[in-house]
């Protein structure tokens, strides 16, 4: 049900994405014309989403910060080659995902977690934690920390491609078509990877499911 909601959300958001893409293209044209400062607008607009993708793929905040910065720098250096055939955020996501995948493959044996804390000022997360536990105070914080580590362990047990699909779809909210463009694969492959990844996650997180 939630997956269908997410798909419907992306379909409804498509005109908004189109408007965003047009606005981004105008900024990109300015940068290509020599207005280097205009690129800061693109950085400010997409920094949290790019960092979130890289962070959820690496589970390391220091590496995520470096990789996100490198993705923006690569996009800035190559922006003269951007033709506007795809949206800027898809192009930027592709750079970030490819850089992260390359980093993960290089450092396959040297991976350790460095997690950000879950901010409970978000109403959705607070409601979810309330549904999971009745504890308060230090016990609640410990439960949230334990759940976060279990989630991270389950994500790290997925392959890199499956983890990327789950991150882009469930956390960042991209559609199957957008994920296929970012990962340069078919929509069927995206659906297959997503289904398989969810099965594995469900088996790993079974104690927390109702």
């Amino acid at each position: 049900m939630n997956a269908s909601k997410a798909i419907g959300k992306t379909l409804v958001a498509s005109p908004e994405r189109k408007l965003e893409a047009d606005a981004d293209l105008a900024v990109v044209r300015r940068v290509q014309a020599g207005d280097v400062a205009a690129f800061d607008r693109l950085i400010g607009k997409y920094r949290e989403r790019v960092l979130g993708i890289v962070y959820n793929m690496t589970s390391n905040r220091e590496d995520a910060a470096d990789l996100a910065q490198d993705a923006f720098i690569k996009a800035f250096q190559s922006i003269h080659r951007f033709q506007g055939q795809s949206s800027f955020f898809t192009w930027l996501y592709r750079i970030a995902v490819n850089s992260t995948l390359s980093h993960l493959r290089k450092n396959r044996l040297r991976s350790f977690s460095s997690l950000e804390s879950i901010r409970e000022d978000d109403p959705v997360s607070r409601e979810l934690v309330d549904a999971l536990t009745d504890r308060t105070g230090a016990g609640r914080e410990a439960f949230v920390r334990e759940l976060q580590e279990k989630l991270n362990d389950a994500m790290q047990k997925l392959s890199i491609n499956h983890r990327t699909v789950v991150t882009l779809f469930e956390i960042d909210g991209l559609s199957h078509q957008e994920i296929a463009e970012v990962m340069d694969c078919s929509v069927g492959t995206v659906r297959s990877r997503l289904h398989y990844a969810k099965q594995l996650l469900q088996a790993e997180l079974q104690p927390y499911l109702r």
Binding site: N2, N56, Q69, I118, D122, L128, I171, L201
Partner: peptide, 30 residues
């Protein structure tokens, strides 16, 4: 009585965000 799914748990990952001071350093570095 609420049903907890994998998607709900993954939504918690969205709440893993860096503190506001992180972005100042991020801006300067980039």
């Amino acid at each position: 009585e609420r049903r907890i799914t994998v998607e709900d748990l993954l939504r918690l990952k969205r709440a893993e965000r860096p503190p506001p001071e992180f972005w100042a350093r991020f801006e300067s570095e980039i």
